[in-house]
């Protein structure tokens, strides 16, 4: 551990020495990346894409050095931000905060020391602590499936939904979903319960939906992991009334199913790829290398994935 940090410190010193060489026209970018540890599939994807970005971008740009830190919880992430700032001496930061409120101060401190800060996915409570914000489109994440379901059911049918964990992000998605359904009075949303973005909980909640509702036309699983549990529960109950199962995020298994047309109930998905961390790192690094700034807010659009464009979203090497 100590040798590791010492080595980091040495590299930082070396980097600083290089940077002060007058021969180099462009400023060196020492970019820190702080992300949550891979505790579930989506974060596994975030980790994969962050490392992928490091590999690709460091090869491409000689003046770029990327240091990735993963944290298991918010306090650990705060400590790592401090280390990145004081030991690694970063001058740019891409951070995927664990929680909005708890990490606002630590990020603000990094910015106060002169680093350029890009915040990803979860916004900070005080936006002056960031230079740029890159996020997925949670409104589209709820809107696209709702529109698809309405269209496929010709504006008439029974729908049940699963929700993730009670967060602002989950609320945004649900609100957008509801907003679309409001325009189609013949589509009935029977219920929406939390299944914690977890396969097992989705299985149980779906089992109970199937017991409770004798006729369901579409299930909005709202997440590809939860869709796995939904499918198993339907299979067990031997129900054939469900015509559409709509997941979310674009996990590789789900995209493959759409691509191959393996299941007629799964014909579409909405993208919310962990690849946006790759985009955020790339945008930040390239802008800083040129000494430019990013727009204050960049939304990586969520789009409808169907058989036609599925291959663009299929990343077999990613864990997600």
């Amino acid at each position: 551990m100590t040798t590791f940090t010492r080595r980091l410190a040495l590299t930082a010193v070396a980097a600083a020495a290089f940077a002060s060489l007058p021969a180099l026209a462009a400023e060196k970018v020492n970019l820190g990346v702080s992300i949550p540890a891979a505790t579930h599939s989506f974060m596994g994807g975030i980790n994969y894409w962050a490392n992928q970005a490091k590999k690709d971008l460091e090869k491409e740009h000689k003046d770029l050095k990327i240091t990735i830190k993963t944290a298991a919880n918010a306090p650990e992430q705060a400590n790592q931000l401090q280390d990145l700032s004081t030991v690694t001496k970063i001058n740019a930061l891409v951070v995927f905060p664990f929680e909005s409120a708890a990490l606002t101060k630590p990020v603000a401190q990094v910015k106060a020391k002169g680093a350029y800060v890009t915040v990803v996915d979860r916004g900070l409570t005080d936006t002056s602590a960031q230079d740029a914000y890159v996020a997925g489109d949670n409104t589209a994440f709820g809107k696209i499936p709702a529109e698809y379901i309405v269209k496929q059911l010709n504006g008439k049918g029974n729908v049940v939904a699963l929700r993730g964990i009670a967060t602002t992000l989950d609320n945004e998605r649900m609100d957008a979903f509801n907003a679309v359904l409001k325009n189609s009075p013949d589509i009935k949303l029977l219920d929406a319960k939390y299944a914690n973005w977890n396969r097992d909980d989705a299985f149980k909640v779906t089992q109970d939906y199937l017991t409770r509702f004798k006729s369901i036309d579409a299930i909005w699983a709202a997440d590809d992991d939860m869709a796995v549990g939904v499918l198993k529960a339907i299979e067990q109950a031997k129900r054939d009334d469900i015509k559409i199962i709509f997941g979310g995020a674009g996990a590789k298994g789900m995209v493959k199913t759409i691509m191959d047309g393996k299941d007629k109930r799964i014909t579409a998905d909405v993208s919310y790829s962990p690849k946006f961390i790759y985009d955020a790192i790339k945008l930040t690094a390239e802008a800083r290398l040129k000494g430019e700034k990013l727009p204050a807010t960049t939304i990586i659009p969520s789009v409808l994935i169907t058989k036609e464009n599925a291959k663009d979203f299929y990343h077999p090497n990613s864990p997600f």
Partner: peptide, 12 residues
């Protein structure tokens, strides 16, 4: 055999 899969959220 229920889901045929294990992920970091299994058994949480």
């Amino acid at each position: 055999p229920r889901l045929g899969s294990a992920s970091p959220t299994t058994g949480l």
